[in-house]
Amino acid sequence: MSIDAKLAELGLTLPEAPAPAANYVPYVIAGDMVYVSGQISADENGLITGTLGDDLDVAAGQAAARRCALSLIAQLKAACGGDLSRLVRVVKLGAFVNSTAEFTEQPQVVNGASDLIVELLGDAGRHARSAVSSPSLPMGVAVEIDAVFQIK
């Protein structure tokens, strides 16, 4: 099943690939690798802001991470000229979670992105990853995730 068909089956749609907010590009293709810049948590209502361990719980953080994953896939689609069948595998996610010093469940938050990617892509979606705490993120967002993909 294609990625687009799987998205439709899950009732999900990719957002438009977000434009960069500063002096950088949304992705770089080097050989068969696509490096996608950090995607911040946002949905159709705007930015998903807040701090895990303060005004957001793990479930809210997971929802924010899922939205980051959709933006990563949208950037990948743009990098592949609209053809997601070029994806070979997800190599790595690097995730930053806006959280208090006492909050230690960053991996559970980032599972929101990882679980969605594996649900969409199966074994090709299994990836290495980091999930770290950050005392703040751009514009107060809850989560930011970057990614490395291998394409053909």
Rank of each mutant, 00 (worst) to 15 (best):
L87C: 09
K152V: 02
G61C: 13
N111G: 12
A65H: 02
L14C: 13
A42F: 14
N45K: 08
A64G: 03
A128R: 11
A17E: 00
A64E: 01
D4Y: 07
A63M: 12
K6F: 05
V58C: 07
A131E: 02
P135C: 15
A63R: 08
G82M: 09
F103M: 07
G38M: 08
G125M: 04
V109R: 12
N111P: 03
V148Y: 06
L121Q: 07
E44R: 13
D123T: 10
A22R: 15
D32N: 12
R66L: 15
D55A: 13
S99I: 00
S130W: 10
A74T: 03
L56N: 10
Q75W: 01
C80I: 06
V58I: 11
I40M: 10
E9L: 11
V90E: 00
G82I: 09
V132W: 00
A5Q: 04
A5F: 07
F149C: 11
A8W: 01
A69I: 07
G112Y: 02
G82H: 07
K77L: 09
E105H: 06
L120T: 09
V90N: 00
A42L: 14
A30W: 04
A21I: 14
V58R: 05
D4R: 11
C80R: 05
V110C: 12
A128H: 13
Q62H: 09
R66M: 15
V118C: 13
I145H: 00
A79G: 07
D43R: 11
S130K: 02
D4T: 06
K92Q: 10
V132L: 07
N23V: 12
Q62F: 13
S114K: 09
N98C: 13
T13K: 14
V34S: 01
S85L: 01
L14F: 08
S99G: 14
L10T: 00
P26C: 12
F96L: 15
M33C: 15
Y24F: 14
G31Q: 03
L93N: 05
G94V: 04
